[in-house]
Design a binder for these strands. Structure first.
Length: 418
RNA sequence: GUGGGUGUAGCUCAGUCGGUAGAGCACCAGGUUGUGGCCCUGGUUGUCGAGGGUUCAAUCCCCUUCACUCACCCCA
């Protein structure tokens, strides 16, 4: 057997890559309109960055990271998510000194050692955005509005925006305590996993998919009822601004986060079309993160979109590859040389032009022009060289006209670009 | 990490109750001595995932293994 790609890491081939390019180009455009700048960070970071930010006891850090020692003995990790590297870069370059508010976005591969399945891969791609320096609920709403606008622009529907508030270090401990008390009284109804984790990570139980757990937590205390005054007001304002902007959303008080740094506003864009990997985008507020990584005490909020999941949702409605505007069918060596020069001139001028390189028959060249969906085919043979006029065929209606060989490049440029 | 499913041509798959394989699509050529799409004719392509066992004989039965895939888990 020849060498295959690494498990869970996929090639993106012609035919599919056009969809990726569209999704990325639209992100540049939409995020740019909202005042975000792109930031690019390395694929590898010191391991400590992730263990400190994501949380030592999360699954990501405990068992899903690609971690290794480099030849100098430093423990490095392929980034499993994008927020921590952006925070690291932000702090390292003191970006808060340039502007009190930073709006950044990124896109690129992330790595997690998980068992691959539909919508979940070991190398996957995220498009993410982060805002640093604003606590006001307007920015929460603006980030959500931008995310919503992006999904409108890429024409993906069948997603629902779910919003929740997780509280802050002041109010969450109280909620935690009351939730643990509630779960303790119903331990025997919980699944084994939840029985094990209700002490360490009680919020996780709210997200459990087992029928027993779902029933057991049906009237569990909700986070929202336990918010402190500040958090409650913040959450109310977020909702008010979302309504002002006509952003449709639902409140899901059972939504939790897999990463430890989230506080207050959290959200997910979920769909029922991707099996169990139902989140196509997720994010939230992380007000303590920058400071905990050694930076200034700045609030932050952001999200990440799973690009593979978008591509899956686009499904059959793929973005079509660009097709040649002109195919030049040449017969004989002399005509092929003329065709080559002509094609090159057109390409320099930005016209998508193509010709045959394999010495095929005219019939075969026409077939290829058709297969490539060329808009026009120029036929150039001995007769045309002798008469000084080439045949230009419109491939959609089959009509054919004569064009002068003298100044042909300019004539074609006018026809094809005008 | 756990469980299920599937591995046969480039793709989607059929098949042999054990006698070393086929269809459609794709690709190539011809039907038109210089004109695509539709149609017709012909052609190319396989270590039947890998290793071992049973057998005169294995792509088929048995064992092992690998890969892919879906789900659990986790998450974008």
């Amino acid at each position: 057997m020849s060498i295959a790609a690494v498990k869970g890491m996929n090639d993106i081939l012609p035919g599919e890559v056009e969809t990726w390019q569209f999704l990325e180009a639209t992100a540049h455009e939409v995020f740019g309109a909202y005042g975000f700048s792109e930031i690019r960070t390395p694929a590898v970071e010191k391991t400590e960055l992730f263990s400190r930010s994501i949380g030592e006891t999360t699954d990501i850090v405990e068992k899903e990271m690609y971690t290794f020692d480099d030849k100098g003995g430093t423990s490095l990790t392929l980034r499993p998510e994008g927020t921590a590297p952006v925070m690291r870069s932000f702090i390292q370059h003191r970006l808060h000194n340039l502007d009190p508010v930073s709006k950044l976005y990124y896109m690129g591969p992330m790595f997690r050692y998980e068992r691959p399945q539909k919508g979940r891969y070991r190398q996957f791609h995220q498009i993410g955005a982060e805002v640093l320096g604003v606590e006001d609920a307007k920015i929460d709403a603006q980030v959500l509005a931008m995310l919503y606008q992006y999904f409108c622009r890429i024409d993906i529907e069948a997603v629902s925006l779910q919003v929740n508030s997780l509280g802050c270090p002041v109010c969450r401990p109280n909620y935690r305590k009351s939730l643990i008390g509630y779960l303790e009284a119903r331990l025997e109804k919980l699944c084994p996993d939840c029985r094990r984790r209700y002490q360490n990570n009680p919020l996780r139980v709210l997200d459990c998919k087992s029928a027993g757990c779902k029933a057991a937590i049906a009237d569990a205390p909700s986070v929202v009822e336990h918010l402190c005054a500040d958090c409650d007001q913040h959450f109310e304002q977020v909702q008010r601004y979302l309504r002002t902007l006509d952003i449709p959303f639902v409140i899901n008080v059972r939504m939790v986060r897999g990463l430890d740094y989230y506080v207050r506003t959290t959200f997910e864009l979920v769909t029922d079309r991707l099996g169990s990997q139902n989140a196509v985008a997720a994010g939230g507020r992380y007000d303590g993160l920058v400071e905990s990584l050694g930076g200034p005490p700045l609030p932050g909020i952001g999200f990440a979109i799973g690009v593979e999941r978008l591509v899956l949702m686009k499904g059959e409605q793929r973005v079509a590859p660009a097709t040649p505007q002109l195919f030049i069918a040449a017969l004989g060596d002399e005509a092929a040389d003329r065709a080559f020069v002509l094609m090159s001139a057109l390409q320099r001028a930005g016209v998508r032009a193509e010709m045959d390189y394999l010495g095929k028959s005219l019939k075969a060249q026409m077939r290829r022009a058709n297969k490539l969906h060329a808009a026009y085919t120029l036929i150039l043979g001995e007769e045309e060289l002798a008469s000084g006029k080439a045949q230009l065929k419109n491939m959609s209606d089959g009509s054919q006209s004569q064009v002068d060989l003298v100044g042909l490049a300019d004539i074609l440029l006018q026809r094809l670009q005008g």
